[in-house]
Design a binder for these strands. Sequence first.
DNA 1: CTGAAAGCGCTTACAG
DNA 2: CTGAAAGCGCTTACAG
Lengths: 335, 335
Amino acid sequence: MATIKDVAKEAGVSIAAASLALNGKGSLSEETRSKIIEAAERLSYKPNALAKGLVTNNKINTVGVIIPKPGTEFLPFVGMDILSGVGEVASEKKYNMLLDWEDGLGGSKVLDLVQSGIVRGLVFFVPLNDVKTFRTLNDLNFPYVLMSRPPEGVYCSWVDVDNADASYQATVSLIKSGHTRIAYSSPAPMDYLVSGDRHSGYRQALLSHNLAYDESYVSIGDGDIQSGKRAMEQFLSLNEPPTALIAGSNLQAIGMIESLKERGLDHREKAIITFDDSPLAESYGISAIHIPTNLIAKESTRLLMKRIANPRRIEPESIVIGAEFIIRSTFVPVR
Amino acid sequence: MATIKDVAKEAGVSIAAASLALNGKGSLSEETRSKIIEAAERLSYKPNALAKGLVTNNKINTVGVIIPKPGTEFLPFVGMDILSGVGEVASEKKYNMLLDWEDGLGGSKVLDLVQSGIVRGLVFFVPLNDVKTFRTLNDLNFPYVLMSRPPEGVYCSWVDVDNADASYQATVSLIKSGHTRIAYSSPAPMDYLVSGDRHSGYRQALLSHNLAYDESYVSIGDGDIQSGKRAMEQFLSLNEPPTALIAGSNLQAIGMIESLKERGLDHREKAIITFDDSPLAESYGISAIHIPTNLIAKESTRLLMKRIANPRRIEPESIVIGAEFIIRSTFVPVR
DNA sequence: CTGAAAGCGCTTACAG
DNA sequence: CTGAAAGCGCTTACAG
């Protein structure tokens, strides 16, 4: 493969001149410049990113995306939305995208990545926030952005919807349409920020409308269909089963509906609202709180790029994006 | 950040000795070696991958995954399955994973990647095969593996299911349960290998069982729900509508069922078999041809690793993986 | 068994 | 306006 040396020789100039011309820097005569460009094209020269990275900032132009290991905790639709958003903004800036996930072995993997120079910045979509890793990144003054509200004690840039508010609004709309027995099923363990925020919005809505908060109406789930079934069964076994449910994920909501069907009940027997929207929720006709994951990913990556472009430590920024409540056939007033 | 120079100084040895010790090479005294290792730990030294890559093979230890742009043509479940498979094998070998997709601007992006030294090998999951890119990769003797049967004229390693055979078997099982009017809806345009292979298996099954092949029973779709609806509407408008259908994707199959429902028909009105299996197909109760995407991804990456480890040109290998036919409630005998 | 030196492909002051 | 030189962080023959 051709190197810059070959290009210089082919064009009959010095290596430095070739570098300048190829990067559009310096003040070369138009003639020399085009002579060099032509030589590069003739040899189909592509710069070696490693050498370039080594000599500039010791980094390669790559953004790293950290997501949960596929198959756990989140819907593939969400994952792909994120990757597509990050990838789009990254590629606009001629950045590559590196994908990795937490492996349960602790955050050391992320730090390896950072120190090896393979990435210039990181975006995180990790439900359980690892404070220690973030602290270390802060100490290193390494650029990163969270696609979620940061955990207590971490000062950094982030982009997210207001989960508590979205949950509050959804609960209120159920109350307003006459429901008084409303259940909540979390998308993940309660120590996950997203679970806690949504739970507190739900609770707040009940209390501010003079409805009792009852723990037996709360189920702790994970992202899959089974956990939706379990939640529904738990709720149906109560003396006074809820008439409305807020599901933590599409698959959970589907599980709830399946559970209803298994008992020979209509899927509109209960009012069901799910977090996250997808073709799935649409085709099942499930009312959904649309979290604009793709937009969150894009905005996060934009913040990251801004931060990378600014070598000095700058103030973290945060963006709160609005969630949209989409009413479909599972939104039924109390009967 | 600490460099190898710092480590050498801290341990009181030469840079060469430090390099040897850190890489477990050369013959150093046990004492010197551990002295160096300890110094590295004390400084929390992480080697700079760029420098290392530059000096060894001009490449960084990264595998590139090329998939279609998210949101087009394929189910996120499939995409995540692939990423998870590639990532798992890659990380076993301490490789990073770089994600990219075709952008419709031609394959030059891939070649940039290759020549920049960012990846040591590529795995492709691309329905429409770009012969020119593959030829160039062959010329460069650059390691890559396809997660699909290669197109005509490309000689390379690949891993795939036998789509024609899977389609044949599914069609035969419909014939055996009494269907004579069987429709086929492709997952993509017909010039995609996967569409063509499945179509030819379907056609072959009909012909070898003395059933006529009728073009009005064939619909050309894409991966989404709408195309399933369209296909069903096309078929239902025929004088003799099919009694059984083979769908190209889960979403297509769901579209077919939705279309049935919209007309007030039971979803078991028709026998429906879908390609690809997912929680979706499971929860809808759609009979499915399970394509082990995750396994395909893993095996492909293993082949790639083998190829990378072997600097000399070696013979391409191919692996055909069996598809599994899973019968669910949409598999109904002819009425 | 260990050290000094060359070199991977590039960029960036610095001379001229 | 252009060239010679140093250097990014590492590894690998090659001396000793």
